[in-house]
């Protein structure tokens, strides 16, 4: 059995699209306090001076969800989450480059 999604349902999480704090809370389903905490730990880097002006690049949404999973599933504290994110970003980037190189080698 397969199911089909209609075309056009996707939304690109690109750096040049931005979300307000309220939009990020709404889309991620996490409490506003948690988002504020992520900003204070430099996990999220919104543009704008204070919370009312914050504009988050769209990829922040996937990052918020990842932070929630890491905290719950691996019982990580904030420094642990920050370290895991940095290492995962690096791992991800290296895996991507590695796959691209393998594809080029054919």
């Amino acid at each position: 059995m397969t199911d089909d999604f209609t075309p056009g349902a996707g939304e690109l999480l690109a750096d040049d699209r931005h979300l307000t704090l309220a939009e990020l809370v709404d889309a991620s389903g996490v409490r506003v306090e948690l988002i504020v905490e992520m900003v204070s730990h430099d996990i999220l880097r919104p543009h704008g001076r204070g919370a009312p002006d914050w504009r988050f690049p769209a990829p922040a949404l996937a990052r918020v969800r990842r932070v929630v999973r890491l905290r719950q599933d691996l019982e990580l504290n904030w420094p642990g989450v920050c370290l895991a994110l940095e290492l995962l970003d690096e791992l991800h980037d290296l895996r991507r480059r590695h796959r691209a190189l393998l594809r080029r080698l054919g």
Binding site: D4, L12, A14, L61, A100
Partner: peptide
Amino acid sequence: RNINVTIPKGVVEGQRIRLA
């Protein structure tokens, strides 16, 4: 599962497309 997705112009590697 099969999905039909609109690939936005100018998408680059590593970017994510979210299907809510």
